[in-house]
Simulated assay, not measured.
Amino acid sequence: MRQPAAAPFETPRTAEHGATYGGFRASPSDPHIAPREALLGNATRPHSPTARVVEGGQTGSGALHQEITEQLWNQGLAVVQLNEPLPHHRFTELGEFLGTAIPETDPAVQPFVQERVILNLRSRHAPTQDVSLQPFARNSLSLHSESSGAGVARQPRYIVLMCVTPGEDTGHARTVLVPMREVARRLSPSTLELLSRTSYRDSPEAPAIARHVDDRWVFSYRDFLDQELRWTHSRPDTDPGTVNAALCELLAAMYAPQETIGVRWRRGLLVVIDNTYHFHGRTAGTAAPPRQERHLQRLRIR
């Protein structure tokens, strides 16, 4: 999702039409800042998920599809090691098995798109503030749910990542994952209630930041780093300071170090993330141009 343009800090205030609205901007003293810097800067090493080896993944789909289905059902995350990356037709076939692949329509990413739905994520650019180019750069990506500002029907359910080339052995970026259930467990009931009535003001179709689905909490949220998040809260009599405190508590829970999973990429590693079960992000890569670019392929599945 494109982040809203930065705006001058706005003092929260009460709207006239049955809602409260305001703005949240992280402070350097907030409790999530230090663990976020440590995680995204590769100062900490989150535990790695166990990859199940699927032999013959290149010749038949049955075993691969069954393994992915079982892992997604059990944990909202599938991690599979193949002998070699899937060819394009097999990769898109996997997407069709999971649902409907979302076309990559952003003009800025078209040079990296194949078959309309496969996005080639290459660590080609130096660190950049251009949100459209950040997936192809060597900077970190803050924790987020995919397309958090879109309506629920337009958000992907699954993000499929496959490693073609892992890049350098040392200093390359890792994909990091945080289970939403663990984030919700760390939040107070009052915070969850506040977040369930709060949404992005600049994205009218976006759902509440926290919503209850099938007896679990699902989040639609991105860590906006030092940019302001302009929010709307459905109750007009809510103290805006309590909403900002809830957002601060959410960020602290997201970056709790003991909950983080780190994927170290190897050629042929396939990861399927349920967007309603995990936040995801990326640690920083090497500052200097690497000898070998990291190359992942991505599908977003609705």
Results as ranks from 00 to 15, higher is better:
residue 153 A to V: 14
residue 281 G to M: 02
residue 130 D to G: 04
residue 105 T to G: 10
residue 201 R to W: 10
residue 258 Q to C: 08
residue 215 D to S: 15
residue 275 N to S: 10
residue 255 Y to S: 05
residue 168 E to N: 03
residue 140 S to W: 06
residue 83 N to P: 01
residue 150 A to V: 04
residue 71 Q to W: 04
residue 269 L to Q: 13
residue 119 L to Y: 02
residue 121 L to F: 07
residue 83 N to G: 10
residue 228 E to A: 14
residue 87 P to L: 02
residue 173 A to T: 14
residue 62 G to V: 13
residue 187 L to V: 14
residue 298 R to Q: 09
residue 117 V to D: 09
residue 126 A to N: 13
residue 139 N to A: 06
residue 154 R to K: 15
residue 184 A to R: 03
residue 136 F to S: 01
residue 186 R to S: 12
residue 220 S to K: 05
residue 301 I to S: 09
residue 13 R to C: 00
residue 287 A to Y: 04
residue 89 H to N: 07
residue 165 T to W: 01
residue 261 I to Y: 09
residue 83 N to D: 09
residue 33 I to F: 02
residue 260 T to E: 04
residue 193 E to Y: 01
residue 123 S to A: 12
residue 168 E to S: 15
residue 127 P to R: 05
residue 193 E to Q: 10
residue 165 T to E: 12
residue 248 C to H: 02
residue 276 T to R: 12
residue 80 V to Y: 03
residue 66 Q to M: 02
residue 189 P to R: 09
residue 152 V to T: 14
residue 126 A to L: 13
residue 255 Y to T: 08
residue 199 S to P: 00
residue 107 P to A: 12
residue 185 R to N: 13
residue 242 T to I: 08
residue 268 G to L: 03
residue 63 A to P: 01
residue 294 R to Y: 15
residue 92 T to P: 06
residue 292 Q to F: 01
residue 133 L to A: 12
residue 29 S to D: 13
residue 188 S to T: 11
residue 240 P to S: 05
residue 85 P to Y: 08
residue 188 S to M: 09
residue 288 A to C: 06
residue 101 A to H: 05
residue 290 P to F: 00
residue 244 N to F: 00
residue 232 T to E: 15
residue 18 G to N: 00
residue 260 T to N: 04
residue 80 V to T: 15
residue 45 R to S: 08
residue 51 A to K: 03
residue 192 L to M: 14
residue 262 G to D: 01
residue 256 A to W: 07
residue 10 E to F: 10
residue 214 D to I: 00
residue 108 A to P: 02
residue 187 L to W: 06
residue 17 H to V: 11
residue 152 V to P: 01
residue 38 A to K: 11
residue 7 A to V: 11
residue 157 R to P: 01
residue 299 L to V: 14
residue 130 D to S: 14
residue 176 V to P: 06
residue 207 P to G: 07
residue 278 H to M: 06
residue 261 I to T: 12
residue 291 R to G: 13
residue 10 E to K: 03
